[in-house]
């Protein structure tokens, strides 16, 4: 697993409660990026996009349930591996089969890895 990336949010940044009396009336989350932590760590398979096969239709961007694929009409899609959970929906939906799911343990050395 690629641990070289700096984490956006540290454990100690999250509120923790030792006593129910310190709790607010209800739990709410402030809308910040990565409020569930670095969910990229959850992956066992990672989506790898073969941009040369990609027709830039944007399906992967639309289908990604976690919003971790960025899309640019000129350059095409890009996966944010800090948060991508590796669910594989993008690979399944890609009409050009341009996305393959690779084991995290597999050494990925092709030039299509972009992170």
């Amino acid at each position: 697993m690629n641990k070289s990336k700096k984490q956006d949010l540290k454990k100690e940044d999250l509120p923790s409660f030792e006593d129910y009396r310190d709790l607010p009336h209800i739990p709410v989350s402030i809308g910040v990026k990565g409020s569930m932590g670095n969910t990229g760590e959850w992956r066992t398979f990672r989506p790898v996009i073969n941009l040369s096969a990609c027709n830039k239709c944007g399906f992967c961007y639309i289908y990604c349930p976690e919003g971790t694929i960025k899309f640019d009409k000129e350059t095409g899609p890009m996966v944010d591996y800090i948060y991508c959970k590796g669910c594989g929906v993008c690979a399944r939906e890609c009409p050009k089969d341009a996305i393959t799911m690779r084991r995290e343990t597999e050494q990925v050395c092709e030039n299509d890895e972009d992170d």
Partner: peptide, 25 residues
Amino acid sequence: HLVLNPEKPIVHGNLLMPQQEYMEF
């Protein structure tokens, strides 16, 4: 404890895992 304000979005009705404070709430 709560007010809706489009300038300051919040997520409400969150999922609390068993080890989190559901029981305390």
